[in-house]
Measured scan of single mutants.
Amino acid sequence: STVKVRLGHLEVTLHNVSEEDVRELRELWKNGADEEDLRRWLEEWKK
């Protein structure tokens, strides 16, 4: 499914993403990950 995730002022649209992935991303964000960390996660996730 396609999910729009809003993290601060960063809005990311993920395609074919699982609930688990979204949860993981939100956890990262809650734990103080900055945009760099999130971008890195997204790069990994896209592979």
Rank of each mutant, 00 (worst) to 15 (best):
V5L: 14
L14R: 00
K4A: 07
H9Q: 14
L10R: 08
E43W: 03
K4W: 00
E27F: 03
D34L: 11
V17N: 01
K30A: 15
A33Q: 04
D21Y: 13
N16W: 05
L38V: 06
K30W: 09
E24H: 10
E11S: 11
W45G: 03
S1N: 14
E43G: 03
E20F: 06
K4I: 15
E44V: 04
R6Q: 11
E24W: 09
R39P: 01
L42C: 03
L28I: 11
V5A: 02
D34W: 05
V5F: 05
T13Y: 07
E35G: 05
E11C: 12
E24D: 12
H15L: 08
G8D: 04
W41Q: 01
E11L: 11
V17T: 02
K4G: 02
G8R: 06
S1E: 11
E19P: 11
R26I: 15
R26L: 13
S1Q: 15
E36F: 06
E43H: 07
E43F: 03
G32P: 02
A33Y: 07
G8S: 05
D34Y: 07
R40A: 12
D34E: 11
L28C: 04
K4P: 02
R23P: 01
T2R: 09
R40Y: 06
D37H: 11
W45V: 10
E11T: 11
E36V: 11
V3L: 06
T13G: 01
G32V: 03
D21C: 08
V12R: 02
D37P: 03
V22Q: 10
R26C: 10
D21V: 10
L7V: 14
D37C: 08
G32T: 03
L7M: 11
V12D: 01
E11H: 09
V22N: 03
R23V: 08
D21G: 11
V22L: 15
S18V: 04
V12Y: 09
W41K: 02
L10A: 08
L10C: 11
L28D: 01
V22D: 02
R26N: 15
V3M: 05
T2C: 07
D21Q: 11
R40D: 07
S18M: 07
W41C: 02
L28S: 02
D37Q: 14
V17Q: 01
L14W: 01
W41V: 02
K30G: 12
V17A: 08
V12G: 01
L42Q: 01
K30R: 13
R26S: 13
L38K: 01
L25S: 00
V17Y: 03
V12S: 01
E35H: 07
K4H: 10
H15T: 11
L28K: 05
R23Q: 11
W45T: 05
E24L: 11
R6P: 02
E27W: 03
K47Y: 04
V12I: 14
E20H: 11
E36K: 12
E24P: 02
L25D: 00
D21W: 15
K46F: 15
V22P: 00
E36G: 12
R23F: 10
L38W: 04
E24I: 15
L42T: 02
L25T: 00
V5Y: 00
W41P: 00
A33H: 04
V3K: 03
L42A: 02
L10D: 12
L42V: 13
E27H: 04
W29R: 12
S1I: 15
